[in-house]
Nucleic acid binder design. Structure first.
Lengths: 147, 147
DNA sequence: TTGTATGCAAACATTTTGCAAAGAG
DNA sequence: CTCTTTGCAAAATGTTTGCATACAA
């Protein structure tokens, strides 16, 4: 993995740095982490890394195909390593739980869109919102006492 | 539609105001608009409406089910009226074009997720990224000259 | 050496909040 | 009248940028 990073970086004219190694490792260890969480994790291990470096590095790592991001909330994006199996995400609107699902589950949609619409899905970026089994979708989400 | 708004607002203890009417109309007319675009549109018609009012109103309108939002870019969310036919979105990573697709196209995915995972999709919020027919997905997206 | 990468601080874009005044019911 | 809604300004959140210095190759 470390060599992989070095090779890929150099292959694209980038340089291998301690920060880039740390940030990639953080993404791998955290599973689904926002830039902020990555920063915090990196700082646990090595003292001073800057937020802008995290943003810049995540961009590079994504360009190299080593990480990907998806939008699991209306807030910050979350990054995950591409070293694990490919997947897309299910997010429950009620309990906020995130579930990774195998690409095959969306095969029919992928095929339909390609055949009927000429559209090729970027499945790794796909996030599907809804309600999980435990959180019945017909239940009122919560009480609204506006006033 | 105007009565619909009034009724729905009052039915939930909210009040009918000029701003709320204007903002709902803006969303209907603009099709897929960010809060900023809604603000600009509203200001074209009535002079002074505040950005915070737009945010607060969109939240209310969404709670009432009169509008919905989806994330069509990594930036601001876009709002659309629910008075038109239900749909979800296809966004091309290359030309950025947005296409609205009938729910039926995702029927297989909806059904699979419900049957096999107990997950009920919120299809109205779904945005699928990828490449449209005109923008071949295997083409290099662009030149990277980092340096 | 040469040019890329980082840290830092400031700028940016977007959204949220507190509070007094305006307005709906 | 009462309570909601608005405008305003300031704060919070998340991200990007310019520039001098540090460092990989």
């Amino acid at each position: 993995m470390a060599e992989d990073l070095a090779d890929r970086l150099r292959g694209s004219g980038y340089r291998l740095t301690a920060q880039r190694q740390l940030i990639l490792r953080a993404v791998e260890e955290l599973a689904h982490a926002t830039p902020d969480e990555v920063l915090a994790h990196v700082r646990d291990q090595a003292s001073a890394v800057n937020a802008s470096t995290v943003y810049r590095t995540l961009e590079v790592l994504e360009e190299l195909g080593l990480v990907r991001h998806a939008h699991l909330s209306d807030r910050a994006p979350t990054y995950h390593s591409t070293s694990g199996p490919a997947h897309f995400h299910l997010v429950c609107r009620n309990c906020q739980r995130v579930r990774s699902v195998a690409p095959g589950v969306a095969a029919a949609l992928v095929e339909t869109l390609r055949a009927d619409h000429g559209f090729v899905i970027d499945l790794g970026h796909l996030t599907v919102f809804g309600h999980c089994e435990a959180c019945a979708p017909t239940d009122p989400p919560e009480e609204h006492s506006h006033g």
